[in-house]
Computed example of a mutant assay.
Amino acid sequence: MSNIDFVVTWVDGGDPKWLAKKKLFDKSIQIDESMNASKNYRPGNNFKYWFRAVEKNAPWVHKIYLVTDDQVPEWLNLAHPKIEVIDHKQIFPQDALPTFNSNAIDINLYKIPGLSEQFVYFNDDIYITNSTTSEDFF
């Protein structure tokens, strides 16, 4: 089977810079009371376990693309040969940014430079908890 990549989207909704940008473009947001409240965007406290689970349970994966909006978890090993951070600027035209719409992000994932034809898309709250093979996905 050809190379299979994983793509995962992530946002640190507690990041003051990100929150300020979101508020600037969506005046209706009540950060503490709406569905868009910052509590709904978890920081990367548990997200590191997503990468550990992939390393342990899917070591066959070719590349992992982390798609995010000008953010990188401070603990992420950017020197790891399988990990590549993709900023929204790499997959969206400038006049479409910023975007906070997960559907818009999803439909632009195919624009990730170097992405294998076969890839598996994850949200940051979906974890691989058991050993897998590529045949589990394709």
Rank of each mutant, 00 (worst) to 15 (best):
P98R: 07
D69W: 04
E117M: 11
P98K: 08
S131Q: 15
V85S: 03
L115E: 00
F119R: 02
E74S: 13
K111S: 05
D95Y: 15
K82M: 08
H88I: 05
P73S: 05
Y110I: 11
P113K: 14
I107D: 08
Y110N: 10
Y127L: 13
I83T: 05
N108H: 11
N77C: 06
P81E: 11
N103F: 14
L97P: 12
P73R: 06
A104C: 04
A96I: 06
N103S: 11
P98L: 03
A79Q: 14
K82F: 03
P113M: 02
P98Y: 05
E117F: 08
N77W: 08
L76P: 06
D106P: 05
Q71M: 11
K111L: 03
Y127D: 03
Q118L: 07
W75C: 08
K111Q: 06
L115R: 01
V120Q: 08
P113L: 07
N108D: 00
I91K: 10
N77M: 04
S116M: 05
A96G: 00
T99P: 12
N108S: 08
I112G: 02
I105K: 12
D69T: 07
K89R: 14
E84L: 01
A104H: 15
G114S: 10
T99E: 09
H80E: 01
F122M: 11
S116R: 02
T68Q: 02
T68G: 03
D69A: 13
I86F: 01
I91A: 01
V67M: 01
A96S: 15
N101Q: 10
F92L: 08
I112W: 02
N103M: 11
S131R: 15
F119S: 06
P93G: 04
E74I: 00
L115A: 04
Q118A: 07
F92P: 11
A104G: 04
D70A: 13
D106R: 15
Y110M: 02
P93K: 13
Y121G: 03
L115W: 04
L115D: 04
D87M: 03
I83M: 06
E84H: 06
V67Q: 10
N123L: 02
P93S: 09
I128Q: 10
V120I: 12
L76Y: 10
N101I: 00
D106V: 14
I86Y: 01
Q94N: 11
E117N: 13
I107A: 03
N103R: 12
H88A: 07
P113A: 11
D69N: 15
I105G: 00
E117W: 06
L109R: 00
K82T: 07
E117Q: 14
I91E: 03
A104P: 00
D70Q: 15
A79E: 14
D69Q: 13
L97R: 13
D106T: 15
A104T: 04
N103I: 11
N101M: 07
F122N: 09
P98S: 09
S102D: 08
Q71V: 08
Q90H: 08
N130I: 11
N77G: 03
D95G: 01
I91Y: 05
T68D: 02
V67P: 05
F119M: 01
T99F: 05
F122R: 09
E84N: 07
A96N: 12
